[in-house]
Nucleic acid binder design. Structure first.
Lengths: 221, 221
DNA sequence: CGACTTGCGTGACAATGTCACTGAAGGGGC
DNA sequence: GCCCCTTCAGTGACATTGTCACGCAAGTCG
């Protein structure tokens, strides 16, 4: 049937009981994406709900004039409700999902989704919780963009992108797209960080030499 | 039982069949708010789902330094999923809902909500659709704040706030809170609009003298 | 008529975004 | 190796937006 066991992937989350995971396993369709692939976008709205089995998806929104902002990331074990949102709302939207790693996902078709939502309390709660989390995520984005300073936001983002490592592999343009600003702005701030010995730069790579310092700036939220 | 008939309020939306509305009627608790009251906020998270029977609620988010931005509005016949989102996510958030008019709402307790969601397909779809709509709303806000120009956003907002009338009753500060910016910025732009004979101002009131002109600016989105 | 609150105007400045460039760094073909 | 080409980063000038510190005008209430 499948070459992976959906039931064990959710072990950590404990969000869905085993029998529900089995039902998912039975009805879902497997999708694979390579790093960099577009998982969904304005032109390709999937007819169902995504569950991420393995990998990570970056969901971002872009403007007409080419700027871009990252809304949130979907990790293994989570679902991407934005696709369903757009399915339901049938509105145009310019958000897209891109695979940040190789991705294995399952697509639960709308009919199966409806059936599970009707019959399985745990599944329904899981979906509601997923919606809630994304709403909260977006509230955070709005707050940052509307009220936050970019040096603060950048310091914060560098630390999270670093994930404990001391190097971040990203171009200035990448970071600009993370925060929804322009490359030049990022360059300015990074050069400032460099002057203050918080980071060191080379082409495409940023070394976080003083994480404590960055954290201090990030705390000024 | 109740002094109004919930079943007829949703007549227009046709989202929920009559029997489901009857069930809502039976289990829900009525809440009344006066214009200006806080319906929910960081300090008061209701234990259930709001349905707006009558009136309008403005949902906004505020920053530490006192600035504020309107996220969306909840109209009669709609539900406010943000409260449930926060109930589920149990995260701190700084969004609040304020009654823009006198408001009659019903609060569906969590237990009743769960039961209805399990048993009534139409109800479940209604809630999913409500979540979806809010997600889309927030995407729009992010887009505006991150990529939009304030003159465009202000022109747009003036027209929607006017709702066909030719006067908007709002202070510069009110408008600043709508768009998540500062009063001075609004003053500047409004004075510019005035010089171009798009509007006329008096204390607390803005007359939209050239709606076509405003619309033209708003289209530059 | 004063005192007081609230709404608005303003100038100087800081932060951020835009534009039009420049050159440096790396990759691939020869 | 070297040349060509693309991508990445730096820069200065300027536009837009946000912040600060005021002052003044319009209503409110005694």
């Amino acid at each position: 049937m499948t070459d992976f066991d959906w039931t064990e992937r959710f072990e950590g989350t404990a969000a869905l009981p085993v029998d529900v995971r089995r039902r998912l396993n039975a009805t879902a369709r497997i999708l694979k994406f390579s790093r960099g692939d577009q998982v969904f976008g304005p032109m390709s709205v999937p007819d169902g709900l995504f569950f991420l089995y393995e990998g990570r998806i970056r969901v971002s929104q872009s403007s007409e004039n080419g700027r871009e902002i990252v809304l949130y990331r979907v990790d293994a074990g989570e679902s991407c409700v934005l696709t369903t949102a757009c399915m339901l709302a049938e509105e145009a939207y310019n958000a897209e999902g891109v695979a940040e790693t190789d991705v294995t996902a399952i697509l639960l078709p709308k009919t199966a989704f409806d059936r599970l939502a009707a019959e399985e309390d745990a599944f329904r709660n899981f979906v509601f919780a997923a919606y809630s989390r994304r709403l909260i995520d977006l509230l955070r984005v709005v707050d940052d963009v509307a009220f936050g300073r970019i040096d603060v936001r950048l310091a914060e983002r560098l630390l999270t992108l670093g994930q404990g490592r001391k190097e971040v592999r990203a171009t200035h343009q990448d970071l600009a797209s993370e925060l929804g600003t322009a490359r030049e702005v990022i360059s300015r701030v990074l050069n400032d960080f460099q002057k203050r010995d918080l980071i060191a730069q080379s082409r495409g790579v940023i070394s976080l030499s003083d994480k404590m310092g960055l954290a201090t700036i990030a705390q000024s939220a």
